[in-house]
Design a protein around this nucleic acid. Sequence first.
DNA 1: AAAAGGTTTAACTAATTGGTTAAATTTATG
DNA 2: CATAAATTTAACCAATTAGTTAAACCTTTT
Lengths: 203, 203
Amino acid sequence: MDNNNKYEETDTEQKILKAAAIVFERDGFAGARMQAIADECGMNKALLHYYFRSKELLFRRIFFAKFQTFFKDMVSLADTEIDFFLRIDMFIDNYMRMLLANPDLPVMLFTTIHQNPEFLQQLDGSFGLKMREIFQKEMDEGRIIKINPLHIITSIVGLSVMPFLARPMASHVFKIPAPEYQKLLEERGAFVKHAMRAMLKPI
Amino acid sequence: MDNNNKYEETDTEQKILKAAAIVFERDGFAGARMQAIADECGMNKALLHYYFRSKELLFRRIFFAKFQTFFKDMVSLADTEIDFFLRIDMFIDNYMRMLLANPDLPVMLFTTIHQNPEFLQQLDGSFGLKMREIFQKEMDEGRIIKINPLHIITSIVGLSVMPFLARPMASHVFKIPAPEYQKLLEERGAFVKHAMRAMLKPI
DNA sequence: AAAAGGTTTAACTAATTGGTTAAATTTATG
DNA sequence: CATAAATTTAACCAATTAGTTAAACCTTTT
């Protein structure tokens, strides 16, 4: 077989990656066991090492892919042709869709970066500056209140992500059954859109 | 010495608890090492077991104390003598103060409950129902928009907590130096108060 | 001051776990 | 079909780590 990677990854490799994502998102890096990943995809533990060398390399593979998933929607905020609040709406829609498909992603992401801040160095953070300019322009032209852009982005993400982060806690404290909580998550996007307008529209 | 606990806990015990809090908040339960806690307080590893028997019991001790810290301010929302938005303001002030004093608490809390949802069973969640009633009353009397109370509480917490959760990520992506980020955290409370009014005030 | 009880330590143990290896098995190739 | 190469497996190894133990060391009490 050719040894360069122009062919699709093998079925086995994909199965391992999928299983690893489940286990790492559930247990975190330190808590995850290679054996648990092997069990999850019904393969032998040595196979994981055959395909990915080490636990850390396998984890990095998962982590960086998931990190991109978490941030990729943000670039759509940069399309200045469209009305600012419509762009925000679009972003929130996409973001909530992504979160509903990856409900355990935020915990894994924040935990990993908290425990391994050096991972950030290997990540592209170039869109940060661009986003700053975009927000600045909207402020200068009086379409949103004047405020540090970081407050805006942490607000969108905070409002969107918190119901996912707090799910077990909130559903326990507020005694909400799983299906009702799910409905809440699905209607969250609409509320976040309303909230962002309310807090950013001038006067 | 008396064997009942009417006396203050020993200095050593306090030192261990403090060190354990630091290490567990930094590394999580699975990632934390008993030796690291011993090093952190300059004691012998066997001492930790002498005082707390096992890693898990020591962790539970820290966790349940911190969990209370995270939720205790919420009861102040129940004092219906005071105007609703003033109560919200007070809560946000206290909450931000708590977060500034415990910036690593949210990551540890969300991660732990995500990985050990059974911990919730041992926690008092009685204030959830009370809080629901409080919000319902404000809605019925037209002082805030009609919305599921969970959206309100996750909004306050999400807006307050996200800048702490996202600190390493956000300061990297937006290239914000540590002192400036600290200033942002300190002014966050004011913004959250504004945002909550804006999103909840009718029309 | 000496006995007793509580505290601290160094050395040790057992179990877990990431990773290796060499053999077995399947798949591709001439 | 036979040979080579890639894939999969079971058994094994070395390192880490939670937890134990017994002795040394204080502190209190009589």
